[in-house]
Design a protein around this nucleic acid. Sequence first.
DNA 1: GCAATGACTGGTA
DNA 2: TTACCAGCCATTG
Length: 112
Amino acid sequence: MHGEPGEFAERVLDVVDAIPLGRVLSYGDIAEYLGWGGPRQVGHVMALWGGGVPWWRVIRSDGTLPPSHQGETRLRYAEEGTPLRPGGDRVDMRRARWDGRSASAALDDERT
DNA sequence: GCAATGACTGGTA
DNA sequence: TTACCAGCCATTG
């Protein structure tokens, strides 16, 4: 192999690129959604080729921002309207977590 | 093939 | 809230 992303990487990047505005996904969610490996591999892919996708929408399951680009990420959320917890140092996963599995149906389903 | 590493996760203290 | 532990799986030396 070489510096080019494989099918798995493209899968991950495709999902990340499909995350709607104001929504986020956790590494584990992506891994489970793809049915591929674990969160660490997703993180590895993001670290290598995440520059081509909205990586700021991919965070940890507890809502904490990536170890890098925190300030950048926080800014993105402010513009995208991503629900942040009081303090703005973390994401409100309860509301921001995107369910790509039912996304096609969820577009019409909105809960107050 | 084995050991170490990593943009991780969940539970317990 | 933070800190530590054990499990997780692909990549790399």
